[in-house]
Design a protein around this nucleic acid. Structure first.
Lengths: 152, 152
DNA sequence: CCGAATTAGATTGCGCACAATCTAATTGCC
DNA sequence: GGCAATTAGATTGTGCGCAATCTAATTCGG
C-alpha cells in the first residue's frame, strides 16, 4: 500500500518527467563531450555551428530564436567562436543594431569533420531511428507547449 | 527532393533528439523558475530537496548518485542550502570522509509549501498524466542507455 | 601491520544560462 | 521633423556543471 502510493506520489523524484529530461540532457552532454572535444567545440557552440551550417550570415537574434538563448549567453559564446577563427562578427550596415555572424573558411570546413557526430550519438542511444524520431517529436511538442505557457 | 533530403539530414538541428531534450530542459526550467522563486530555491536545489524529503540524513555521495552530479557541483550548492538554513552539513563519525546532509526544521517545513509545484508543472505541460508517464519512462530508458555507454 | 590504492569531498577554473541593466540604433506616432 | 517606445546586443552578477587537482580518511594486498 505504501509502495503503491509512492509510485504515484507527484513529489517523488523518480516520478518527475522534468528530472528525466534534465538528467537525459546531461547524459547526452557527457556522450557528446569526447566527440566535440576533437572539434574544439562545447555542446552549445556545436548547436550554433549547426545553425550556421544550415544558413550562414545570420544576425545573433536569429540564432537566439532557433536555440532559445539570449544575448547574455550568445555574446560571449560567439566571441569565443570568433577567437577560435570559426566565425566572424560584423555590425550590419542596414541596421547598425544587428551583429551578423558569418562562418570563416575554417568554420565551413569543420562541417565535414563533424559529419560523423550524429551517427556516434545514434549508436550510443542504442535505439532505432524511428523510435528516436517519435520521441524527438513528442519532446518537441511538450517543449513547445511549455514555451507557450511562458509567453502567458 | 531537396526538401525530402533535409528532413532526413542527421546534421540538421531540427532532426536531433539531443537538441529536443536540451531545449525541453530549458523550457522546464523557465516554467519552474517563478514557482521555485517563491520557495527561494533554484531547480538543482529543488532536486536536492526532493531527494532529502524522500530520505533524510544522507551522505553527499548518495545525493550525487541520484542526481548524476559530482562534488564540484554539490559542495557549493549544499553550502548555499546550509546558508539558507534548509540543511545541516556534518562530517560522519563512522567515516570521516563523508559529509552527511540533514534537513533542518525549515527544510522539512518547505516540503508542504512545495506540494503544489508538481501539479502546476502538470498543468503547464498540457498533457495527460498517462502520456507524461510513458514519455518519462522512455526518456529515462534512453538516459540509462546513454549513461551505460559513458561507463564504457 | 604497513605502504599502495581507493574513496569522499573540497577547490579551482572555464563555459554556459539567465535576470537585470545599459547603450545605441531604429521605428512609430503626432 | 522630433520625441517616445521598441529593438539588438553588450555587460554584470549569480548559480550551476564538470574536468582536473588536492587533501584526508579508509581499505586492500602483501
Amino acid at each position: 500500500m505504501a509502495r503503491k502510493l509512492s509510485t504515484l506520489d507527484p513529489q517523488r523524484l523518480d516520478n518527475q518527467i522534468c528530472f528525466a529530461v534534465y538528467s537525459a540532457a546531461h547524459a547526452f552532454n557527457r556522450v557528446y563531450k569526447p566527440l566535440l572535444d576533437r572539434l574544439g567545440l562545447t555542446y552549445p557552440q556545436y548547436l550554433v555551428m549547426l545553425v550556421l551550417w544550415e544558413r550562414d550570415d545570420v544576425p545573433v537574434k536569429d540564432i537566439g530564436e532557433k536555440l532559445f538563448l539570449d544575448s547574455g549567453t550568445l555574446t560571449p559564446l560567439l566571441k569565443r567562436l570568433e577567437a577560435a577563427h570559426l566565425v566572424k562578427r560584423t555590425r550590419s550596415r542596414e541596421d547598425e543594431r544587428q551583429v551578423m555572424i558569418a562562418l570563416t573558411a575554417q568554420g565551413h570546413a569543420l562541417k565535414e569533420k563533424a559529419r560523423s557526430v550524429p551517427q556516434s550519438i545514434l549508436a550510443a542511444s542504442d535505439c532505432s531511428v524511428s523510435e528516436l524520431v517519435t520521441m524527438k517529436d513528442e519532446i518537441v511538442a511538450l517543449r513547445d507547449r511549455l514555451n507557450a505557457v511562458i509567453g502567458e
